[in-house]
Design a protein around this nucleic acid. Structure first.
Length: 767
DNA sequence: TGGCGGTACTG
DNA sequence: CAGTACC
DNA sequence: GCCA
């Protein structure tokens, strides 16, 4: 049945077969790493891994325009270090024809063109032939003519000598481009000279590209055949990208391209989930993955919404469960009615009245494979232009950050002090309200470079990522389209490399490097892991290297810190953006709670909210009190937090001041009663005379802060969240030798002025 | 070639 | 201490 | 990645 072909699938769960044979000592499970020795081992392994990745990614860059030999070895080393020990049992996925599952999961992503135009009648029976080695008519391609790629001039995109698929005819199964990644593969194949057929033309077809979730039997079923002719190679969907990565036609007989259940001519032991050689007694990839796989097969069609609330309650660290929640209602009610209800009675009353919502765990509907959805989502976002990302925390001037409130495009009469040139390179010297986004002539360039930036954001190079951000920021401010490398080169923060990329983007409307990058399966997992609160580049890379692919793998095999547990349990929560008005509501609750504690407290919502974003990654609240120093504030935060827990607003703490009673910060999660989603919330208590510096710091964005601080240090100052300091002496490695003397801290304006930076309203601090 | 912000909490 | 977090 |  044709419907079979429409099964939803996640191509990024399918690379596992890849290097099944490469079990090595490196692939020991994470949980074994408890002793000092093994920790050290892990560390060194990690280092090596990073080095290799870094080195090879450089090579890739270097060779991207000419040589390909180098990059292939580079890729090889990446793969062999990062993707190993994956043994997933592909074959358990029961291919029951769940009709148009696709439409549930992917409906909003890719308009399904080909499925409509492709007749179900393309069964193998119709064997009328077009002569071999003639390009098929456009109509028989899987890519619709009006697809971007087809519209684009075909030839110049990929140079002739890279048309490695010349003369090859591909038939994809499923034979559509619903799935963005498959669509991407089809495009790639097409651009490199291959013909992707949407009809079964037995005599022409040289390769069948099978989605890795499908078995050989699915292939037969889908084609309504008993067997596949010998002249047609059957490979899984990693084949295309591998050929591209290695820039040549690879041997399709290699085991890693086999389709599960395929009657192999040579050997087929690899088809089994390798029960024989677990590297250690409890192989992480074995049971969990199989388990996950099978359940994936059964539940995938069921769940629609990726609620991740399942584990919310059994997390030990979440104090939510046993809290007398819902008195938060009292607070909100109080806010609405502006009545002072301070006593417990009214709170209990309110709690009784409205104790309905079983907190946080909204549905128990067995959400097994949120991860599938998340990964698919991540993939989809990676593929679609103009996403507002999962990974970018909040700021960044990335698409979504801006607030329409901006009305005036202020032309600032910058009072510039004498020294003109060098400090112009500091982002903080230029207003940037990010408002230019719409109608910006460089929009497409920015969009693609942003993808690159996001890509590098994870682990590869934080500095590279930052450089991209700076370059993008500069580009965003241009009023004219930057078309050539030379033109781009003149702009600040845009060097050779970025300039060349800009030119490539303008000319070809794409960036090859990015497209290859997006297919790397390890990177998908990396991105996934990096999204967990408490997991950074180091841990994420370690997890990837250990062979973990999903959060479930991690949960089952790794000892997590408390924060990481929360981070995983509320992965979705923390990944989602918070609408501005919800931020406000959170702020109001904290404010009124604080007001009950001490009426003189002043609270302000900071972060991207203060910068005017229409949605935020988290909630930042600064608390201060007129005329009060650090001493007197000490106990205050604790009390406030306690109250917030009591009213069921605070759900858990993630990081709080310890030791010193000077403690001034609290990171945690909070929740409104009528919104199930936990939100990240940061509280910062600051002494009155540091409020200016704190304001500056807590408003950001981070690039702006870095820029200000760097500028300060170049001028002999030191800037931090507590103040601006003078006479900072810096040692050899720019180490601070003294604390200097505070020259400002009360007000933002003062700090701007001393540093010679024209004052910038919060909305203009988006770099 | 080495620098790229400055600080605070976690384990 | 390294890792992660905050802006 | 960019810059000094």
């Amino acid at each position: 049945m044709w419907e079979l072909c429409g099964r939803s699938e996640d191509p990024f769960l399918n690379k596992e077969q890849f290097f099944t044979g490469l079990y090595s000592l490196d692939s020991e499970p994470e949980q074994a790493e408890t002793s000092e020795a093994s920790l050290a081992l892990a560390a060194s392994r990690n280092q090596r891994y990073k080095r290799i990745v870094r080195r090879s990614s450089r090579l890739q860059v270097a060779s991207s325009n000419s040589t390909t030999k180098i990059s292939s070895t580079a890729l090889e080393s990446i793969r062999s270090t990062s993707i190993q020990a994956f043994t997933k049992n592909i074959s358990t996925a029961a291919p029951e024809p769940v009709v148009s599952e696709n439409n549930i999961n992917m409906a909003d992503s890719t308009p399904d063109i080909s499925a409509v135009t492709t007749a179900p009648s393309t069964a193998p029976a119709s064997l009328e032939c077009t002569p071999r080695h003639l390009p098929p008519p456009e109509s028989s391609r899987i890519l619709p003519v009006h697809t971007k790629v087809a519209k684009r001039k075909r030839t110049p995109v990929v140079p002739a000598k890279k048309q490695i698929f010349g003369g090859m005819y591909f038939y994809f199964i499923p034979n559509d481009i619903k799935n963005p990644v498959r669509k991407f593969r089809v495009q790639k194949a097409d651009e490199h000279g291959g013909f992707c057929l949407k009809e079964w033309r037995e005599q022409d077809i040289t390769h069948i590209i099978v989605d890795s979730k499908l078995k050989y039997s699915d292939v037969l079923k889908s084609l309504r055949r008993e067997f596949i002719p010998d002249h047609i190679a059957i490979v899984n969907d990693t084949y295309i990208s591998d050929c591209l990565a290695f820039a040549r036609i690879l041997n399709h007989d290699q085991f890693q391209y086999k389709v599960a259940g395929q009657p192999s001519t040579t050997e087929n032991s690899f088809l089994l989930p390798q029960p024989h050689s677990p590297p250690l007694s409890s192989t992480p990839s074995e049971t969990p993955l199989c388990d996950q796989q099978s359940s994936s097969a059964t539940t995938q069609s069921l769940h629609i919404r990726p609620q991740l609330s399942k584990r919310a309650n059994d997390t030990p660290s979440s104090a939510a469960g046993d809290r007398p929640t819902d008195s938060q209602l009292a607070v909100e009610a109080e806010l609405k009615a502006s009545v002072t209800t301070d006593d417990l009675v009214s709170q209990q009353l309110a709690a009784e009245l409205l104790s309905t919502p079983g907190p946080s765990t909204t549905q128990e509907c067995e959400v097994k494979d949120e991860l599938d959805i998340m990964i698919a989502e991540a993939v989809r976002m990676g593929d679609l232009p103009l996403d507002d990302d999962i990974s970018a925390p909040d700021d960044g001037g990335t698409s979504s950050d801006e607030e329409p409130i901006r009305a005036v495009k202020r032309k600032k009469p910058v009072a510039r002090t004498g020294n003109s040139k060098w400090q112009d390179k500091f982002q903080c010297m230029h207003a940037n309200d990010g408002k230019q986004q719409e109608g910006n002539p460089n929009a497409r360039t920015i969009e693609i470079l942003s993808e690159m930036q996001k890509y590098y954001e994870m682990t590869k190079d934080q500095w590279r990522s930052i450089s991209y951000r700076k370059g993008i920021s500069v580009l965003r401010k241009q009023t004219k389209k930057i078309c050539t490398a030379a033109e781009a080169r003149k702009l600040p923060m845009i060097g050779e490399s970025l300039a060349k990329k800009i030119e490539e983007i303008v000319e070809t409307d794409r960036l090859r490097k990015l497209e290859y990058a997006q297919l790397e399966p390890g990177d998908v997992a990396l991105k996934l892991f990096l999204g967990v609160y408490g997991v950074g580049p180091s841990v994420a890379a370690r997890w990837v290297q250990s062979g973990y692919k999903t959060l479930d793998d991690v949960v089952k095999n790794v000892r997590l810190t408390a924060s990481q547990k929360v981070g995983i349990d509320h992965y979705q929560d923390f990944a989602s953006r918070i609408p501005r008005d919800e931020v406000k509501r959170h702020g109001d609750i904290v404010m009124s709670t604080a007001a009950n504690l001490d009426s003189q407290l002043q609270l302000q919502i900071m972060g991207s909210y203060r910068r005017g974003s229409k949605d935020c990654g988290d909630i930042d609240i600064m608390i201060t009190k007129p005329g009060v120093s650090a001493q007197e504030i000490s106990g205050l935060l604790d009390e406030l937090i306690e109250r917030l827990f009591e009213i069921g607003f605070a759900m858990c703490g993630l990081a709080m001041s310890r030791g010193r009673d000077d403690g001034s910060k609290w990171h945690g999660a909070s929740k409104l009663l009528d919104v199930p989603t936990w939100r990240r919330i940061d509280l910062l208590v600051v002494p009155w005379d540091e409020r200016g510096a704190a304001l500056l710091y807590f408003t950001g964005n981070d690039i702006f802060n870095r820029s200000m601080r760097l500028l300060a240090s170049k001028k002999g100052y030191g800037l931090n969240q507590r103040g601006l300091f003078k006479d900072i002496l810096r040692g050899p490695q720019r180490q601070k030798l003294n604390d200097g003397t505070k020259v400002a801290g009360d007000s933002e304006e003062e700090i701007f002025e001393i540093l010679g930076v024209p004052y910038r309203k919060p909305e203009e601090r988006i770099c």
